[in-house]
Computed example of a mutant assay.
Amino acid sequence: MRRFGRALIASALTVTVVAGTAGWATAGAQQAVTGPPPGSAAWRADTVLGRPLPDPASAAPREVALFFAGLSEQEQRTLARRHPEVVGNLDGAPVHLRYEANRRAVTDSHDPRFARLAGPGRQILAFDPRGRGQVAQVYGELDGAAHVAVVVPGSDIDADTFDRPTDPYGTPAGMASALRGATRGATAVIAWAGYTTPVGVGLDAATGKLAEAGAERLTRLTEGLDAVGAPDPVLFCHSYGSVVCGLAAEDTDASDIVALGSPGMRADTVADLRTEARVWAAKDPSDWIDDVPHVEFAGLGHGADPTDPSFGARRVPAGDARGHTGYFAPGTQSLAAFAAIATGETGEVR
């Protein structure tokens, strides 16, 4: 009974912190964007190749990869031209073809919010204009990469805030660029804003609803990487993104999962994640996430602190990072450690 009482109090504290942390505003509930990409109905009905096209809703990435492998380059480009929104988001499709399709999809959207995504040199791996917009961008060459990393962001990230200049290391684009630089170009890094994130610090951020939908999309991304021959990725999961990674851990084939500034991973220990990946955790002393109670009760809160020794994660040094978004800042111990993990030099992490 006493334990129940403590849990109830901690749950109430979670709601209080989530609703009233200084400088953060509550927000209305977000509806997760799920299901196949826009244009899927027209894709399914298309007979231009004289045979059925793989169903975006049900075809596994490996099936998609085999389908495209059987097409000529002209046939592939025909599909990308006729159905850019589908091909650009189809995990298992050739990477270069997805870039081409997404350039067309961004241009065809005629939405000024997304215009910059069509800029020269941008390698957009996924683009979905629905809702607040979702996007994934590759830094480096994914084809033939020796190492691959995926940055999974937390709250307030969408197509519009994907690379905001006012907080570069708090965005997936800034994190990915910094990590790529820290590995001296040895790692292809995907900045993945591929799920509906919470807005502000409200009830969405305190529950796992959006993370559950995000975990399914993250799992499919990693399956798509495997289908095109990429190495097992390292997942860098920031803030609410670590909840997504925790829920996806069992179903992804990541080599490593790094939780940073985490409110919890919906698990009490590393063993509860049921993953063969090495699990790492980082939290700097000035991160406000430490003020959020690490509990999970009645659907609120995300469980144990991954940096607590009892959780069992490997600790990443982060003493010189600053605040909740300083982990990827150049010159920090945390960024140096992330680079070592991304390139498989884990013995260099101290």
Rank of each mutant, 00 (worst) to 15 (best):
residue 1 M to W: 05
residue 4 F to M: 11
residue 4 F to C: 14
residue 7 A to S: 06
residue 8 L to N: 07
residue 9 I to N: 13
residue 11 S to E: 12
residue 12 A to L: 13
residue 16 T to I: 09
residue 17 V to Q: 12
residue 18 V to Y: 15
residue 21 T to R: 14
residue 24 W to R: 05
residue 24 W to C: 08
residue 25 A to I: 13
residue 26 T to Y: 10
residue 27 A to K: 15
residue 29 A to V: 15
residue 30 Q to N: 03
residue 30 Q to C: 03
residue 30 Q to G: 00
residue 36 P to I: 04
residue 38 P to E: 15
residue 39 G to W: 00
residue 47 T to P: 03
residue 54 P to D: 01
residue 54 P to W: 01
residue 59 A to H: 01
residue 64 V to W: 02
residue 64 V to I: 09
residue 65 A to V: 13
residue 66 L to T: 13
residue 68 F to Q: 02
residue 70 G to C: 04
residue 73 E to C: 07
residue 75 E to C: 11
residue 80 A to G: 04
residue 85 E to R: 08
residue 85 E to A: 09
residue 86 V to F: 06
residue 90 L to Q: 01
residue 92 G to W: 05
residue 95 V to E: 06
residue 95 V to Q: 11
residue 100 E to Y: 06
residue 101 A to M: 03
residue 102 N to V: 10
residue 103 R to T: 12
residue 105 A to L: 04
residue 105 A to Q: 02
residue 107 T to M: 04
residue 112 P to N: 12
residue 116 R to Q: 08
residue 117 L to M: 13
residue 118 A to Q: 02
residue 121 G to V: 01
residue 122 R to S: 14
residue 126 A to S: 12
residue 126 A to T: 06
residue 127 F to N: 07
residue 129 P to W: 07
residue 131 G to L: 13
residue 132 R to K: 10
residue 133 G to C: 06
residue 133 G to I: 03
residue 144 G to L: 12
residue 145 A to C: 15
residue 146 A to H: 12
residue 147 H to P: 07
residue 148 V to I: 09
residue 153 P to G: 11
residue 154 G to S: 08
residue 160 D to F: 11
residue 160 D to C: 15
residue 162 F to N: 05
residue 169 Y to S: 07
residue 174 G to W: 08
residue 178 A to Q: 00
residue 178 A to F: 01
residue 180 R to T: 01
residue 180 R to E: 02
residue 180 R to S: 00
residue 182 A to H: 03
residue 186 A to K: 08
residue 189 V to C: 05
residue 189 V to F: 10
residue 197 T to I: 08
residue 202 G to S: 09
residue 202 G to M: 09
residue 203 L to H: 10
residue 205 A to F: 15
residue 208 G to Y: 08
residue 211 A to F: 09
residue 215 A to Q: 00
residue 215 A to Y: 00
residue 218 L to D: 00
residue 221 L to V: 11
residue 222 T to E: 00
residue 223 E to M: 14
residue 226 D to P: 14
residue 229 G to L: 07
residue 229 G to V: 11
residue 231 P to V: 15
residue 232 D to P: 11
residue 232 D to H: 14
residue 234 V to G: 09
residue 235 L to Y: 14
residue 241 G to C: 04
residue 244 V to K: 03
residue 245 C to R: 14
residue 246 G to M: 15
residue 246 G to N: 10
residue 248 A to P: 12
residue 249 A to G: 13
residue 250 E to W: 04
residue 250 E to R: 08
residue 258 V to I: 10
residue 258 V to Q: 09
residue 259 A to Q: 05
residue 263 P to N: 14
residue 266 R to I: 11
residue 268 D to E: 09
residue 272 D to S: 09
residue 278 R to V: 11
residue 281 A to Q: 10
residue 284 D to W: 00
residue 288 W to M: 09
residue 288 W to I: 11
residue 288 W to D: 06
residue 291 D to A: 12
residue 292 V to T: 02
residue 294 H to Q: 05
residue 295 V to Q: 01
residue 299 G to Q: 00
residue 300 L to P: 02
residue 302 H to P: 00
residue 306 P to N: 09
residue 308 D to Y: 15
residue 314 R to A: 08
residue 317 P to L: 03
residue 318 A to N: 10
residue 319 G to T: 03
residue 320 D to T: 11
residue 321 A to S: 13
residue 323 G to V: 05
residue 329 A to P: 07
residue 335 L to I: 06
residue 341 I to W: 02
residue 348 E to K: 13
